[in-house]
Design a protein around this nucleic acid. Structure first.
Lengths: 181, 181
DNA sequence: ATTTAATATATGCATAGTATAATAATGAAT
DNA sequence: ATTCATTATTATACTATGCATATATTAAAT
């Protein structure tokens, strides 16, 4: 139920096409709210039908025309209402296949689990590198003292510390498995 | 695509009803693979149609009859194949509404965000308490030196350290907001 | 007296998410 | 020469998930 509100929140900054939004989602929201192209375009259609956004066509010569979406007055209201009403529980369900595989890991060979844990660490390390860059970007922006940059930096920090905690966890697991061998 | 394999993996331990499975999911898998009743029963139906599990009815007098599912030979093979083939990426997409709300937090009043961060910390602390209990249970079981208990303890540890990292993060955010006020 | 909790299974509907491809033009790389 | 990458939108089909509800019985709690 949050994708429409995420899109409304992003359109508050500036009018954007579905393509623009997809780039933003991939770059900055991916670690806590990934969205597919098809989802974004469908949702923009829904939002326009509800008149929470409207659109104008920008003609281009060499490229397909751009359909630029803007948030409407009603859209702003709907977004603000959502922002003011937090859910009863702040814990979101999360499905993590790697965690499931570790849980069921007794059915796998130990050296296979060690191999996969090392792979997991490498993937998380590359995440940390990405998050750190984004965090620094927002740090620079935050010097202008806007709350927005501060909150976005906090979110990147969140993704970062979770990834770092998982690296430490995986390293602990590896150590235990190596001790057993 | 992992729910069927999660169920197969759990049925390797012992035959279970849909109800038994739901209790197990809620108690031990909830933090990394939550599942609804309706999902479990539907999936058991699918698995039985594929003959990866079979079932027998246990008649009860005072309660509705139990339909006890067991994993078949084919089911064991399918599970083992899944266990041996890890996905290309070990990072699962995760949607977290609270993180999204912080990201969009510039549109909210600071004291509201502080209130919600405090609420978030309390919820995470209660998670930590739950995970710690489960972790200790598995620690006791792990003394019998079975790999299964070790891996399950590792998974609980994972949920625990993520929750603890998020508490520290939220406390940092709170501090920064308080400094600004 | 009535509601709620626990045990037990199952279905229907709506929402959400994934996968893929069609269409269209350009420029860069192989 | 052909494939791939980028910019840009849309459609379709499929899978997964969530929420509510129906059925049935017993026992405990209000």
């Amino acid at each position: 139920m949050s994708l429409p509100h995420a899109i409304l929140g992003l359109l508050l900054d500036r009018p954007m096409t579905g393509y623009d939004l997809k780039l933003l989602f991939d770059k900055e929201l991916n670690s806590f709210w990934p969205a597919q192209m098809s989802q974004i375009y469908r949702e923009l259609g829904n939002l326009e039908a509800k008149e929470w956004v409207d659109s104008r066509i920008e003609v281009q010569e060499s490229r397909p025309d751009r359909k630029v979406y803007s948030i409407t007055g009603v859209g702003k209201q709907v977004f603000q209402e959502w922002m003011n009403r937090f859910p009863k529980s702040l814990i979101s369900p999360c499905r993590d296949e790697f965690a499931l595989r570790v849980f069921l890991g007794g059915r796998s060979a130990r050296d296979e689990m060690q191999f996969q844990l090392r792979r997991f660490i490498r993937e998380k390390q590359s995440e940390v590198a990405t998050f750190t860059l984004l965090e620094k970007n927002y740090e620079t922006m935050a010097k202008k003292n806007t709350d927005q940059a501060m909150y976005r930096r906090m979110t990147m920090r969140r993704s970062n510390i979770v990834a770092e905690a998982l690296i430490l966890w995986a390293e602990d697991c590896l150590e235990e498995l190596e001790k057993k061998a």
